[in-house]
């Protein structure tokens, strides 16, 4: 069972959106993530590198019909970090809701 845990690497808005998309499926093509988030290649590369260095994202390159495509996937550590982070966000939100209401 995953414990609620705030993760600063995941929490950055763009990285959170990347993780949310990758977390729903097995893998997503680099261009698809870029288009869905409406960001540039360089911005996505920068955030993917951070997630890769944290050990959360696995990057695979595949050549199909002489075109190289990059596939991104959230690995087990990444899925655990995302799950813990979501639990922590919900806990924070519930706590602030209780305090204000």
């Amino acid at each position: 069972m995953t414990e609620p845990r705030f993760d600063a690497v995941v929490h950055a808005p763009t990285r959170l959106q990347i993780c949310a998309l990758l977390g729903a499926v097995d893998s997503v093509e680099f261009g698809t993530v870029r288009d869905e988030l409406a960001i540039s290649d360089s911005v996505l590369s920068k955030h993917v590198r951070v997630l890769e260095e944290a050990g959360y994202v696995t990057v695979k390159k595949a050549t199909v019909a002489s075109r190289q495509r990059t596939w991104l996937s959230l690995n087990r550590a990444g899925r655990t970090a995302l799950e813990g982070h979501v639990l922590e966000l919900r806990r924070l939100l519930a706590a602030t809701g209780t305090m204000s209401g």
């Binding site: 929490h11 808005p13 959106q17 990347i18 949310a20 998309l21 977390g23 729903a24 979501v86």
Partner: peptide
């Protein structure tokens, strides 16, 4: 906002 972004990703 973060939970909203997560929903957007899904």
């Amino acid at each position: 906002q973060a939970l909203h972004d997560l929903d957007e990703g899904r």
